[in-house]
Computed example of a mutant assay.
Amino acid sequence: MIELWNWRIEGRVAAREIRRALADVLDVPVLPLGGVDPAGVPQGALLVDVWHRPGDYPTSVDCYGVPAELPEVTAIAAFARRLGRHCLLADDTLDAGRHLLVSANGTIRPVHLDVRDTEDGEILSNQRLCTALSPRCRGWSPCHQSRWVPDSVIPALAAA
């Protein structure tokens, strides 16, 4: 089974810059997904698809063939530090508006965003911290069933 990582990045970032950062962080060959002959893909290579849409996190990244032994949060923390940009990944609640924010220094914490579907794709906006002070995050909300409970902060050194 091929594992997939899907991330969002603040601002518009060129696909070439993303592939270069991933290659540096993961120490594997990184190739664009489109136009690659499957027979010519080197063993252990990562295939990456990048596209842009509107919103606060307009750059989307899909990574195929990720290293099984590397936890996704560790990889994205190193990737965010390498790029110097905040990144988002879906958390474990299945709530479309709840994500993990990985800051440019690699610190990880849960956040909420408004999600709006448009002809140009899903738009994320209005980022808010997931905190026990928020009525949405109190009590029996999905936030408390997550590995990343409200007010969780995983410092950069622990994340990498």
Rank of each mutant, 00 (worst) to 15 (best):
T107W: 01
L88W: 10
H86W: 03
P150M: 04
A15V: 03
V48C: 08
S134N: 13
D114T: 12
H144F: 00
T118W: 01
L89I: 12
G35T: 09
V149K: 13
D49A: 14
I76E: 12
T107E: 15
G11I: 09
Q127W: 08
W148D: 02
P110K: 09
C87Y: 06
A156W: 04
M1T: 08
G139L: 05
L46Q: 04
P58E: 03
A23Q: 13
S103P: 00
A159C: 09
R138D: 02
E72S: 08
F79M: 12
Y64Q: 06
P135D: 02
L31D: 11
V30E: 10
G106C: 05
C130P: 06
P150T: 11
A45Y: 07
G121F: 12
T74I: 00
G44A: 04
P54E: 14
G34Y: 09
G106E: 03
L101N: 05
V66S: 00
G121M: 13
W5L: 12
L124Y: 15
A21V: 07
L101S: 09
V153Q: 10
F79L: 15
W5P: 10
D95P: 01
G65R: 10
A21W: 03
L47M: 14
Q145L: 13
V48K: 05
V153Y: 04
P38A: 08
A45G: 04
V66E: 00
L94P: 00
D49K: 11
V13M: 07
G65H: 09
A96E: 15
I9W: 01
I123T: 14
G55S: 10
P142Y: 13
W5K: 08
R20H: 10
S146I: 09
M1H: 08
W51L: 03
R116C: 03
